[in-house]
Simulated scan of single mutants.
Amino acid sequence: MGDREPVDRQGALYVHGGHALMVGCAVDNPPHSHYNASVLLASGAPFLFRHGDGAWQESSGLCVAPCVEQQLRTRDAGVLIMQVDPDGRAFQHFGGRFVASPVIELSAAERAEILAGLPAGPWQGRAAAAFFCHAVTVLGRNAPHPGARDPRVVSVCRMLAEQLEQPPSLAVLAEAVSLSVSRLQHLVKAELGLPLGHYLLWLRVRDTVRRAQYGSSLTEAALAAGFADSAHFSRTFRRMFGLPPSSVLKQHNQVRVEILSSASAGGCNEPG
């Protein structure tokens, strides 16, 4: 690695649209499942990982498909954790890899090439965005395209995102795309990997985090995103990420949180 600094002395979480990059944080979380794809990369000691009811495996680099129950234990703070929103263009670069398996071991060559893109100096917003884009580019080489999403599912997802506080009923959504309710439910599960209700919760979690990071109180943010109260949001967040929301929503000594604007993202114009 030469004189590169693999992580900050203080952990940092960079959020850009539906994507995120966490560096400099030791992790030991309970089983959880979330909508994003995960890229886990060790710049120091290998980490331990398992999915579903499987055995623990040691690894230095993995890609994990969306909606996979998983658990991570790191031995140091040198593991980089990327969360890639399947609704964004970045996922199109490498999402086709999951056709073979929901968990893909990265080759030594891929890990080395991705780590070569670590910033030479301290982490900051533009450097984090550049690393994210570099990693996605490496992962996408020779990866099959995951395929276009059904336009009816795209329309339904857009309708939900635009009406989070009072989302349309299943009947209204189904009528809007000329499907029966049962056919819409089946199509959404096949396309997204999770039921429509769980996808709506993911949209609300993402919106609550965005609002809280821009200054709203947790209660205000949760209510504006459509949660019954902040406790409902907290339970949902913990179930999805295996962490309490306070671990990423509060500026404290362990984790520095930075929301990246399109301008600070520089050459990475993939907003999610």
Rank of each mutant, 00 (worst) to 15 (best):
A224M: 04
S262D: 14
H252C: 12
L173D: 11
L160T: 08
L218N: 03
F241K: 07
A174W: 10
S264W: 05
S182W: 07
V154D: 13
V257P: 01
H198E: 15
F237M: 05
G242M: 09
A225T: 06
S261A: 09
T219I: 01
P244M: 03
A171W: 00
L164S: 12
P151R: 07
L194I: 05
A212L: 03
G147I: 05
L160P: 07
E162A: 15
C157R: 15
P144G: 10
S261E: 08
V177L: 14
A171H: 09
L223Q: 04
K250D: 03
V156E: 09
L170Q: 09
R149H: 15
A212P: 02
S216D: 09
P146W: 04
A161K: 14
Q166W: 03
P244D: 09
S178W: 15
S217K: 02
L184P: 14
G242Q: 10
G242A: 07
R204T: 00
S262K: 13
F237R: 02
V255T: 07
A171N: 04
G197A: 09
A143D: 01
E220Q: 11
M159V: 04
S155V: 08
P167W: 06
R152Q: 14
E220M: 06
R206Y: 01
L192S: 07
Q251R: 11
Q251M: 08
R235K: 10
R149D: 14
Q251Y: 08
L218T: 09
P168V: 04
Q163M: 04
P146G: 11
L173A: 14
L184Q: 08
L184V: 13
V153Y: 06
L200A: 15
M159D: 06
H232E: 10
H145F: 13
L164K: 11
P146Q: 11
I259Y: 04
A171Q: 13
S169I: 01
D207T: 10
L218C: 03
H186C: 09
P195W: 02
E165N: 05
C157E: 15
S234D: 07
L218F: 02
G226N: 03
S234M: 03
L170I: 03
V172T: 13
E258Y: 02
M159P: 00
R239E: 14
R211K: 13
S180A: 10
M240L: 13
L243N: 00
S264H: 11
A265H: 11
L192T: 09
P168T: 03
S247Q: 09
W202L: 08
Q185H: 07
R152H: 13
H186K: 14
L201S: 12
Y214P: 01
L203Y: 01
L164W: 07
L203Q: 12
R204A: 01
S169Q: 07
V181E: 14
K189I: 03
A174H: 11
L218G: 01
R206I: 05
L223P: 00
G147M: 05
Q251H: 13
E165D: 10
R211P: 07
S234F: 04
A224I: 11
S261D: 10
N253Y: 05
A225V: 01
